[in-house]
């Protein structure tokens, strides 16, 4: 988790932060418009963007979708306890293949793995639970169901980062 540190942060200057800020407001914004807004050349914006993606400061610009408009009912937080003596990587590998599981995380706390799955209806949820139970490294599943249908996350994610740029 901590491949990055304060030193790397110091390598980011005002221009980098301003580019992130503009893209957090709207990830589709053209480099030309960003350049005008922050007072540098479009070429600079383009180069900095490329560099920040290479250095994994910027991971991924994506669109957000309201999944309720296309037939989804919510998300499930699946909390998995791994079976003892089984390779935990098996759980990850299995989740990687499952449709509608969009986030998988190692967790330090009450359980071992958290997966966030998009849920269309009860039938598809039951199917997903069944698939998970068949993974040999899974000992126990608990879940909490939320009716949030924003994909991939709430816009609050970007707003929060804006407070820190």
């Amino acid at each position: 988790m901590s491949a990055y540190n304060q030193k790397e942060l110091n390598h980011m200057d005002e221009v980098d932060l301003n580019i992130i800020k503009e893209l957090k407001k709207n990830a589709e914004k053209s480099f030309l418009k960003i350049a005008k807004k922050i007072g540098v050349s479009p070429k600079t914006v383009q180069n900095r963007y490329k560099k920040m993606r290479e250095k994994r400061i910027i991971w991924h610009p994506t669109i957000s979708i309201d999944l309720s408009k296309i037939g989804y009912e919510g998300k499930a937080y699946l909390m998995i306890t791994n079976a003892p003596k089984q390779d935990a990587k098996l759980t990850f590998a299995a989740f990687n293949q499952m449709q509608n599981v969009i986030i998988i995380s190692d967790v330090i706390g009450d359980f071992d793995v958290l997966a966030i799955a998009l849920i269309k209806d009860l039938k598809s949820f039951a199917k997903l639970l069944q698939d998970i139970k068949e993974v040999p490294s899974v000992e126990q599943i608990e879940f909490a169901f939320v009716t949030d249908t924003q994909f991939p996350v709430d816009k609050a994610y970007d707003r929060l980062a804006l407070q820190y740029t």
Partner: peptide
């Protein structure tokens, strides 16, 4: 216009902005 696409998200390394911990 129909609200299927609601905007954009820029996934970034928030650790670099000082937000080191994520939790549920």
């Amino acid at each position: 216009a129909t609200g299927v696409i609601t905007g954009t998200i820029l996934y970034t390394n928030l650790e670099l902005l000082g937000l080191r911990y994520r939790a549920t």
